[in-house]
Design a protein around this nucleic acid. Sequence first.
DNA 1: AATGAATGAGCCTTCATTCAT
DNA 2: AATGAATGAAGGCTCATTCAT
Lengths: 209, 209, 209, 209
Amino acid sequence: MSDAASPKGRATRSRIFEAATREFAMKGFTGARIDVIAREAEINKQRIYAYFGDKDGLFLEVWKRTFELIYEKNREFYHLTEKDVPDLGRIILAGYMDLHERHPEFWRIFVMENLFGGKHGRPGHTRDDTPYGHLRSLYAAGQNDGIYSSDVSFETFIFVLTAISFFYTSNMKTMSDTLGSDLSDPDIKAKLMGEISLMMFDRKECHAN
Amino acid sequence: MSDAASPKGRATRSRIFEAATREFAMKGFTGARIDVIAREAEINKQRIYAYFGDKDGLFLEVWKRTFELIYEKNREFYHLTEKDVPDLGRIILAGYMDLHERHPEFWRIFVMENLFGGKHGRPGHTRDDTPYGHLRSLYAAGQNDGIYSSDVSFETFIFVLTAISFFYTSNMKTMSDTLGSDLSDPDIKAKLMGEISLMMFDRKECHAN
Amino acid sequence: MSDAASPKGRATRSRIFEAATREFAMKGFTGARIDVIAREAEINKQRIYAYFGDKDGLFLEVWKRTFELIYEKNREFYHLTEKDVPDLGRIILAGYMDLHERHPEFWRIFVMENLFGGKHGRPGHTRDDTPYGHLRSLYAAGQNDGIYSSDVSFETFIFVLTAISFFYTSNMKTMSDTLGSDLSDPDIKAKLMGEISLMMFDRKECHAN
Amino acid sequence: MSDAASPKGRATRSRIFEAATREFAMKGFTGARIDVIAREAEINKQRIYAYFGDKDGLFLEVWKRTFELIYEKNREFYHLTEKDVPDLGRIILAGYMDLHERHPEFWRIFVMENLFGGKHGRPGHTRDDTPYGHLRSLYAAGQNDGIYSSDVSFETFIFVLTAISFFYTSNMKTMSDTLGSDLSDPDIKAKLMGEISLMMFDRKECHAN
DNA sequence: AATGAATGAGCCTTCATTCAT
DNA sequence: AATGAATGAAGGCTCATTCAT
């Protein structure tokens, strides 16, 4: 609940947060155990309640941070310029895949809340605050240049990219099994992503006709 | 565990199964409560243990059924012929979307097991037994005809289709929010799917050049 | 409860009894499971209730039979005559040890009821019916002949014999451990019994002085 | 499991232990109820799990303590000297009888584990660590002096003493019934013990011949 | 006589949370 | 700020027993 005031307190709070993130990501909200988080953070259980109120409060903080990460990733795309337009799809996809690779736990939390949560809402943001402004204009430029079909809206474009990166991560296990190839293998991943880009973003030479 | 022997027993077992499917889908494995399942199924809790052994056993059955649904859907594709090759992507995507629409709970179970489960594996099937034989050959035919790029493997093709249909359902809520348009609206859905098809499956006129 | 009327019923009842005896002896009254007994007897659980009323009733039958066995063993001693008097201790001890060896389960039931039961009482016998009449007179003869000390009453004599055979059986495991020799080994058992006889029953040459 | 750290915790742990000892002794392992132990100890059920892990862990502690009592009793015998050799049997028997009189519950636990347990073994001791070193040498001295027969090993000697004291307690009820005299009466007990000593330990005058 | 289905009470265990120091 | 002790409300699972056929 209350924020930590002293430096020592802040360190404790932070250790709790890290441990909680791991535990929630690994086991889901219901599966996560306060005792485990306390043990992993090497603090007394009571500290958790002092700093975060209760299990829900603790999760909310983690969930907020997850959202923050996604916004951060999208902010990275602010640096993209006109010259990146032809590679836009590839870059966004790679960005999302990279986000996941470096923060595997955050995607899991995102999904979890989407599937089984629902009581936490989108934290601290308003509808206006859609994070896609810059990308949207770049995409429009690409459409004008005939690089992207004007029949495919930006929404569809971003939807597909998000879907692929999301699905890749969240269902890697079963899909590896079903497709008969290990999706966690970097080579196989590279091949898959390459082909996906080919499939979706390389209409240039075609439209150039 | 043991199967029900009499029709009455089978009915009970079935009621348990339905209730369990709903409960697991709604709350995840850890969040699901045996008591709730029993109450929903209007049976005595002990029956669950008599018919399914324990919570894990019960979930395994539900998980198996989830897989079975996918196989069933794929079997529907057996009747596709050469003449369907140009529309293959559209047809499969529509099929998957339909599967989910009629069984919203199963996708939830799918992702839950993928992210937080891990002890159940692909049930009752061997690696050789990939369910894609027929589709694979149709796709190959399409590649030969230049309808599908020979640089995009069947695995990638099916992966993307699965990803899109899956993500559409599982993240409809958050994506509606983020994109600012209600994905549960049939018109918007139709538009999105149309554009996706355009984006991915319509290289014909292009290659025809 | 009700006795079985048909031959088939009698066989069923008997199979239940055997299974119950084993199960009770192995796990004690509380530890024994009706389901296990039914499975072992290869009958439907309900038959147990039809024939024996309830778990208590079933145990009572087993407990009765245990007592019966001890009485039977004592009746075997009726055949002993004056000429057996010098070996009386040895013979009784051997008899008890033999009883146990052939019916390991019955001693266990006897102890169990003694320690944790108490609600079943000594079944179907009255105080007058002490089973030691014959042995008592043989022992008295031995005392007259100076083979047994007249300062040691028959009660003490039989108490010690019972104690040894009982303790040997019921605490074999821990005593093997403590003494450092495996009491279940027939050779070690023979040695122990021989020495015990020596210790207690061989005062003859001494008193003969 | 974990030990209590504060005095208050230790007191709680101890109350649990006492209650558990009584409950296990009274009803056996399976018959004992965690709820009852908690109620008797006047603590929250959960404390049991915090301090002892589970029912098995709790029992193991009780079982260990039982063993410890025997070792303690044997340590009392360390002060015996050569001059006690003639009375060795009597002294040991009296000591064991006394042990039981002050800890009636422990014998019950002993036999329970022997008959129906089997998973706990002798706790925390190795085979070499037999607790009888001193008694053994005193007995050997007695054998040299002709007080004890050299044909009767120390193991047999101690076995018989243990058996008698144990059986006296554990089967007092049934034996009183069978023998027709109340073994709980101190006079009768004294008489019995006197006669037993006579029977087993008084070879002196005889060998003196 | 026999069986599969069903039940309610109860058992061990765990969880999130609060208390007292 | 920090901790060990404590708690009540479940949660999964099992048991003896009865019902219906």
